[in-house]
Design a protein around this nucleic acid. Structure first.
Lengths: 136, 136
DNA sequence: CTTGACCTTGACATGATGGGAAGGTGCACG
DNA sequence: CGTGCACCTTCCCATCATGTCAAGGTCAAG
């Protein structure tokens, strides 16, 4: 199976497959006599595994660990759970940051007329670092 | 005022001030005879403006627009509100994606023993793309 | 044999930021 | 005046995951 077919089958672009190979996330693929990379069912599983982990937002470093655990028959599920837990916390932290930003910006936006006049609390806040009126 | 002092006063690193100058986000700073960049109160305001906008997660492109509007005395607040609204939507979309990932991962994690045994629904899901048991 | 689709490697870009090297400048202290 | 130190300058490289482009080789069908 060529790289294009592997890409289509797993949803990982050919570019990224080569990239993952280059950074050592996956082993070097076999080659045909003319240098084409060849993929088998086992490789496809690995690539699919990677894509699903990426879809869940795992970083390459985390995926590297998960792959190791996945291939380790004697793994402890606690290790996997720990990695997942760390990732969940990272994502929750990002959400908190986003939530704070959204809240601030929505508040400012709510106080902005949004008309043709030039006065705008959003810009005022950005300019001075304090709310323009004493609304809160 | 030197770049280091401007950096400390505004919370934008010297490195980033030079970068912003290079990409044309801010005008070229004045120079002393020996080539040191010099900053005045007006420059400090601009840099503080940029830092606050960055803290709110605005992209450089959005900040570029906001800066233009800020310096345009005849601006319409509607324009600012539109940029802010677009940014809010972007952030909310990111939050939705994160929320989905967190939910999926927490669900999997809840079904993982987290002990010394090797069987782990998290890895199963990543490997097969389907839940290992028929729990839902 | 040609054509077109596919493969190869390699280089470069993104966006925002950090790190570091090599060399010039400013100032205080002895 | 010299020395040392903190600061400045420019330039290059790295991150992270991904995309784009270019120049050239390969394969299969017509």
């Amino acid at each position: 199976m060529n790289i294009g077919q592997a890409a289509e089958a797993t949803g990982v672009t050919a570019k990224m497959i080569r990239h993952y190979e280059q950074i050592g996330l996956i082993p070097e693929a076999g080659r045909t006599g003319s240098g084409y990379r060849v993929y088998g069912p086992r490789d496809l599983s690995t690539l699919s595994f990677i894509r699903r982990a990426r879809d869940l937002g795992f970083s390459i470093a985390q995926i590297r660990d998960l792959l190791t655990l996945w291939q380790d028959r004697a793994r402890a599920s606690a290790d996997v759970k720990r990695i997942a837990g760390a990732h969940i916390e990272e994502m929750k932290e990002k959400m908190r940051l986003l939530q704070d930003m959204v809240q601030t910006l929505e508040h400012l936006s709510a106080h902005c007329h949004g008309d043709d006049r030039p006065d705008c609390p959003i810009l005022e806040q950005l300019a001075t670092g304090q709310a323009g009126n004493g609304c809160c």
